[in-house]
């Protein structure tokens, strides 16, 4: 009577998909290793012509030293690698959270009030292509110190993708869902938290993901500029000491950290997806 046959079977325990998963995981791993192999080959080829580049053995040695004592704290400019990353992450994190706290409400406003979109959108379009580093002097003037100015740069960086994606998510709420809210007379709170927000959430998370990715890229440059501790400062410091293998190690560590956070946001995206 009821078309139960067409309901997806979700609770069946079947081992075949597990085997498939392992296999596809192995294939992905193989592709990953092939890519890394290509990267190393490219590096070695370049090193043949550019004699100053450190050898793979040197890089490996430096990496080992870095991780043998990652937590030490000798002076503000001489710290363990984990401490450096934590400093950078705290800066990125505070700028990112402040940015999101501004960007999400702003995006909701732009997405739901057409007049505001017309007023704010040109400003967003004007400021979005500006490198966040250009804001550093403004930050210094306003905050009188490099530390909050660095956080300010990250805040600006984190703003745009989240504003744009939130506004898009909120603005594309289908008429059908609006009609449901109207026909059943949803309260404003119900409309925001049960209809608008859940619909826009996947878009918001995508915005946050892009924002964080860019913020993590910008922090390295910002720390080079501000001369404070952190992974960006470390890169600059290593370059000044002409220690290129430290620079390369830092590049790898920055990359892996960024990748991990991107994966985390990807996981969040899947979590809030309702399709």
């Amino acid at each position: 009577m009821y078309d139960t046959q067409s309901v997806k079977q979700t609770k069946t325990i079947n081992l075949a998909p597990l085997g498939k998963k392992v296999l596809s995981g192995a294939i992905q791993m193989a592709y990953f290793l092939a890519g890394i192999g290509l990267l190393i080959a490219g590096y070695m080829l370049t090193a043949v012509f550019v004699k100053d580049l450190p050898s793979l053995a040197q890089i490996g040695e430096t990496m080992k030293t870095l991780w043998s004592n990652p937590y030490y704290e000798n002076s503000p400019s001489d710290r363990g690698i984990i401490n450096l990353i934590i400093s950078s992450l705290v800066r990125v994190g505070s700028g990112f959270i402040l940015g999101a706290a501004i960007a999400i409400p702003l995006g909701v406003l732009i997405g739901s009030v057409p007049v505001l979109k017309k007023i704010i959108d040109p400003v967003v379009q004007l400021l979005r292509p500006v490198s966040p580093l250009a804001w550093f002097p403004i930050g210094l003037t306003v905050f009188k110190s490099a530390e909050p100015a660095t956080v300010f740069i990250i805040l600006i960086t984190a703003l745009w993708p989240t504003v744009i994606n939130t506004a898009f998510g909120v603005g594309t709420l289908p008429k059908d869902f609006k009609n449901v809210a109207r026909v059943f007379r949803f309260t404003p709170a119900q409309y925001v938290f049960k209809v608008l927000f859940p619909f826009a959430l996947p878009h918001i998370i995508t915005g946050l993901r892009i924002s964080f990715g860019i913020a993590w890229m910008v922090i390295v440059a910002a720390e080079m500029l501000s001369g404070k501790s952190g992974i960006g400062f470390y890169v600059w410091d290593a370059w000044n000491a002409l220690d290129l293998s430290k620079v390369i190690c830092a590049i790898l560590i920055i990359g892996v950290t960024g990748l991990l956070f991107d994966r985390f946001f990807g996981f969040l995206e899947r979590k809030v997806s309702y399709v």
């Binding site: 059908d176 869902f177 026909v183």
Partner: peptide, 17 residues
Amino acid sequence: PGPDRAMVFQNYSLLPW
């Protein structure tokens, strides 16, 4: 609109989340 008139839409219009 008001709760004295309920509507069933062609495309179901259930909230998917």
